[in-house]
């Protein structure tokens, strides 16, 4: 059997890669991809831990909800990206600077 630590290491790596992508990438779509990695890192954790929560499997339940929420969020995000693209003809976040103080 694969020990728990392997899953946790994988999840940590995924989370860090995702966070790095969201911070460094300029393109809105790339940021969304990084976001998806972060959410799925949490999902791996939840499902891996849920094996030790034999009675209720709360972790697996949680992961299912996360998948649904992530889909809803991605739908809203892509709709907004399309709108922004319609106005600016770019999806580069650094160049969206109409709102300033």
């Amino acid at each position: 059997m694969i020990p728990l630590s392997h899953y946790l290491i994988l999840a940590t790596l995924l989370f860090c890669i995702g966070l790095a992508v969201t911070i460094t990438r300029k393109n809105a779509i790339a940021v969304l991809i990084g976001l998806e990695l972060m959410l799925n890192a949490a999902n791996i954790n939840l499902v891996a831990f849920s094996r030790y929560d034999g009675v209720q499997l709360q972790g697996q339940m949680f992961a299912l909800f996360v998948i649904v929420v992530a889909a809803a969020e991605a739908a809203v995000a892509l709709a907004l990206v399309v709108r922004v693209y319609g106005y600016y003809k770019i999806a580069d976040l650094d160049k969206l600077n109409r709102l300033k103080g």
Binding site: R83, V84, L96
Partner: peptide, 25 residues
């Protein structure tokens, strides 16, 4: 302005909630 603000808000918010989710896991 609305579209730009919405996208920025969403990206910040989604990253913050992904971080929160990882902590919860």
């Amino acid at each position: 302005e609305g579209a730009e603000a919405g996208l920025k808000y969403l990206l910040f918010g989604a990253v913050a909630s992904a971080i929160m989710l990882y902590g919860m896991s």
